[in-house]
Design a protein around this nucleic acid. Structure first.
Lengths: 202, 202
DNA sequence: TGTATAATTCAACACATGATGAATTATACG
DNA sequence: CGTATAATTCATCATGTGTTGAATTATACA
């Protein structure tokens, strides 16, 4: 495989270089974590010169930031799903289905695993993940649950969700990694209901 | 603070250098993760020459290994706790109390957070954590639960536990980080009972 | 058309890291 | 006592990293 040298200077025609860098970065951060995703690796994956990621994003941190937080405007899908239900009994099915949807959507999955991987070593990424999980997961659940201890319940539920991601996609626990998402959702349903119904002495 | 040069050659008197290196390494791996725990940092924390950790453990991986897995012979404390109960109804209290104990014991906590931090980036550490969680957490719970789906239930429960560690000690979610362990245990009790009792059509 | 600007390549720097090997001093033990 | 061995310091290497700056070519636009 001969290293073909590209011509100097600007390319002609339309270019979506920036986007392809972001996509490569998102994939690599999610697969290898923050440290092991080098600028040169991202550039190679995007078939681009190693100086280009730095040129577009100035710093590795910034690249990570923009790669992990694409256009997340508007209410999260979790908020939307929760808005359609009213009785506490309907919570279990709703959230269980949603977790399956997250696990099966590659985009969201990559973001969550990328955040977890980085947060484990980089304090700034931990801050990012804190905000993400609080806004996108815990706050909606807490609002929907209501009652006393809603915040603690929602946080524990959120911990359960990220724990599942950790064991399934990162640690690779046999049972979790090979489990059918539907099976997990079924198992999870009564758990969520318990969180929704128990200790509700408001 | 002048850098005082120590004399050359072997020190006189008894030496527990190896142990202090291990202790410093365990603390640092747990606090900063694998990559950011440099050999030089460990040496400095142990007040020892930067070449000594390599001399005693040959490689950084080996140091991590020995630091994270001290003498863990015999049945785990979880197994012991589970051996004392018989009825499924007694599970919730037993495991809830155990989680609290893990969270409050600095040694165990450091090991678990160290394993999680490293596993997020280093595949070999993920293997280590896989074995640890399976043997020390999931297998005992699964055996104690019995019935159909015991393995999946135990794995989900294990995921919840490591998820709590992740959000509480690593990500630093406000609610989780500031929660009283007893409060968490109380909230968790009905959850564990649900895992123990539901879907039990063996 | 002409000129500022954007996109791209290339070479290189500065720095930290894990690891190695030689030199030096103390201990263990026959 | 004498010698092999262990413990310790020091200097250094090789490598990979994020980052920078200059040079080159195309585009945008007045």
């Amino acid at each position: 495989m001969a290293k073909q040298t590209k011509p100097l200077g600007r390319r002609s025609g339309s270019n979506d270089t920036r986007r392809s860098i972001l996509e490569a970065a998102r994939r690599l951060f999610s697969e290898k974590g923050y440290e092991h995703t080098t600028i040169r690796l991202v550039a190679a994956a995007a078939q681009v010169d190693p100086a280009l990621p730095m040129h577009y994003f100035k710093t590795k941190q910034q690249l990570f930031l923009e790669a992990m937080l694409p256009d997340y405007q508007g209410p999260s899908r979790l908020s939307q799903a929760l808005a359609t239900i009213s009785t506490p009994e309907a919570f279990g099915p709703a959230i269980a289905v949603l977790i399956v949807r997250i696990m099966e959507d590659p985009e969201t999955r990559n973001i969550l695993t990328g955040l977890i991987r980085a947060a484990a070593s980089e304090p700034e990424a931990a801050t990012l993940m804190r905000v993400f999980v609080e806004e996108q997961i815990i706050l909606p659940i807490s609002r929907a649950l209501g009652g006393s201890q809603a915040n603690l319940k929602a946080s524990l539920l959120g911990s359960h969700i990220v724990g599942i991601f950790l064991t399934r996609y990162i640690v690779g626990l046999d049972t979790m990694a090979s489990a059918d998402p539907t099976e997990i959702a079924e198992m999870l349903e009564p758990i969520i209901s318990t969180y929704a119904l128990v200790h509700n002495d408001q």
